[in-house]
């Protein structure tokens, strides 16, 4: 082993920009490298929903606010795929890095905490948005898409993927075992998504259950997204965006605080 001592890297270093781009590149490469685990499953699952609830059962269900049942559930099912993909991406990459200890590569680097957080979250957002596009393409085999407001569609999808990427990161920070990363998706995310107005309008629920549904943050995301497509919503679209922004900011503050304290990250 010999060492050449010539210094080769005199250029200015940019831990924020280059650091973030390195993490983003790594995350996106991972999403495509293991596409059969990251992109394919939500497409297959949602296709089944389209076929069973949309085409087979949906054809026997009356129109909702003037739209066929499959047209009504497509935005909700896309949002369900976005939520699952964003959450599972960050929780698995972060927890994997923690278990393999390669999280230390990031912790010893001069990247500020917020850049590390942004790097992990970017992977979740990219995967969720890719899944959304793929699921929307598949939906074209079952119905035709109506687009009411493209900006609202994109804003709702982006904010939701950001929110659940952060939520997955918080889960990954606290998780100490593989059980710890599966409990929340199974017992919290899935029930909240199913009860978040994906398959029905809450206006058709008895008053008590309608009131209960208003406490479910996923309801607002699904309705904002649906509004972007169909121009209809069970709740105010402004309130929906306010809820999404508030929860995202709260999760961001919690994540930054956990990184600063080193909880679940450092000794």
């Amino acid at each position: 082993m010999a060492l050449q001592t010539t210094k080769t890297m005199s250029e200015e270093r940019a831990p924020i920009l280059v650091g973030f781009l390195t993490m983003l590149r790594k995350e996106v490469t991972r999403v495509f490298r293991i596409w059969s685990q990251t992109l394919l499953p939500p497409v297959v699952t949602t296709s089944l929903y389209f076929a069973i609830f949309g085409a087979f059962i949906g054809s026997q269900i009356a129109k909702i606010d003037g739209f066929s049942y499959i047209q009504f559930i497509v935005p909700g099912l896309v949002m369900m795929a976005v939520i699952t993909s964003a959450y599972s991406n960050t929780v698995s990459t972060f927890f994997g890095a923690k278990m393999q200890r390669n999280l230390e590569e990031l912790l010893v680097s001069p990247m500020p905490d917020w850049v590390v957080i942004a790097g992990f979250v970017s992977g979740g957002v990219v995967r969720a948005l890719l899944v959304a596009i793929l699921v929307l393409i598949v939906s074209l085999f079952f119905t035709h898409l109506i687009i009411f407001n493209l900006f609202i569609i994109f804003a709702a999808a982006f904010l939701t993927s950001l929110l659940f990427s952060l939520a997955g990161l918080v889960n990954g920070i606290f998780a100490k075992s593989f059980d710890g990363i599966s409990i929340v998706p199974t017992f919290v995310l899935v029930p909240l998504t199913y009860l978040g107005g994906v398959f029905y309008s809450i206006n058709r629920l008895p008053p008590f259950f309608r009131f209960l549904s208003l406490g479910n943050p996923i309801l607002y995301m699904v309705n904002a997204f649906r509004y972007g497509f169909l121009g209809i919503s069970d709740v105010s679209v402004t309130v929906s965006f306010e809820v999404m922004i508030f929860v995202t900011l709260a999760l961001l503050i919690i994540t930054l605080w956990l990184f600063k304290r080193g909880s679940g990250l450092k000794n």
Partner: peptide
């Protein structure tokens, strides 16, 4: 990747 975390672009880090 480690070079990237220290702010060194790929084209600069590769020869090193």
């Amino acid at each position: 990747n480690q070079a990237g975390y220290y702010g060194i672009p790929r084209h600069v880090a590769m020869p090193r």
